[in-house]
């Protein structure tokens, strides 16, 4: 049912008609989005457009009310039996979330663990990787995000930008097939935004599949393969960054972007 013809590889993320409401407020009114392997998709849009909610629906931090989201060809929270979806048990959902990395606006590092312990916690404790292996990889990841030698620092001893880079390394340690970034620079002091965006650009160029919700137009222009503009719970327009950002077709996109020029 979810199988695609062998010639076209299944998209890493495939969302169809995703709907969600909080009480009487409809936040998502039918979102369709496909993300191919290796693609970097940036979602732009005004506050309240539903972009963060959509991102959180992908790994089921928010439950969707309608539509369907497939990650790597599978529903994260459901199982197909016959012609219906059946809700999975929490532990099975947890297992399926391992393939989806997430970076939060507020970093959400574990404050009682060092940078190193934050990174190896899930690979060792959840995936059952060997400690020696995970240790080596944690060092390599910290080096990759430019934090070699800060293994033993606790989150509070690191700056916001450094914390966010540790959080990126922590998510990467699970070898995710898809990485979600939920406004990763919004909580940072302006002078620290650059180092995080630099790390993310590097990851995008290395072929990591990424969905990024952000207000950093310059990042979208430089690193995105595709830009999606959302407003009022709908995708208003999507396309190459030079098209959407420099030649927006819709009035709402234009007025949103005008604020950043």
């Amino acid at each position: 049912m979810t199988q695609q013809p062998a010639t076209a590889p299944a998209p890493v993320l495939s969302a169809r008609g995703v709907r969600k409401s909080f009480g009487h407020v409809e936040v998502l009114r039918g979102i369709d989005l496909d993300v191919e392997a290796g693609e970097t998709v940036v979602i732009l849009g005004p506050s309240g457009s539903g972009k963060s909610t959509f991102l959180r629906c992908i790994n089921l931090l928010e439950s969707l009310y309608g539509g369907r989201i497939l990650v790597d060809g599978r529903d994260v929270g459901f199982e197909v039996r016959g012609d219906r979806l059946h809700e999975l048990a929490p532990d099975e959902i947890a297992r399926r979330r391992r393939d989806i990395g997430m970076v939060f606006q507020q970093f959400n590092l574990f404050p009682h663990m060092t940078a190193f312990e934050n990174i190896i916690e899930a690979p060792v404790g959840v995936k059952g990787e060997k400690r020696a292996e995970a240790t080596e990889r944690a060092r390599a990841l910290l080096a990759q995000v430019g934090l070699s030698g800060r293994e033993d620092a606790y989150p509070r001893q690191l700056s916001g930008g450094q914390q966010q880079r540790v959080a990126i390394a922590r998510a990467l340690a699970m070898r995710p097939k898809l990485m979600l970034f939920d406004e990763p620079t919004s909580a940072l002091d302006p002078e620290l935004v650059g180092e995080v965006l630099q790390t993310m650009k590097q990851l995008a160029s290395q072929g990591l599949t990424m969905v990024v919700v952000t207000h950093e137009i310059s990042f979208a222009r430089e690193a995105a393969d595709r830009v999606v503009f959302m407003d009022g719970g709908l995708v208003v327009e999507e396309g190459k960054p030079e098209d959407v950002i420099d030649n927006p077709r819709h009035e709402r996109t234009r007025s949103f972007l005008a604020r950043f020029l």
């Binding site: 929490p90 532990d91 947890a94 979330r97 391992r98 939060f104 959400n108 995936k127 922590r170």
Partner: peptide, 15 residues
């Protein structure tokens, strides 16, 4: 903080 729980969930930890 609620974000701690979400960070654990996003890493595939069980409750």
């Amino acid at each position: 903080d609620h974000g701690q729980r979400e960070a654990g969930q996003a890493l595939g930890m069980t409750d």
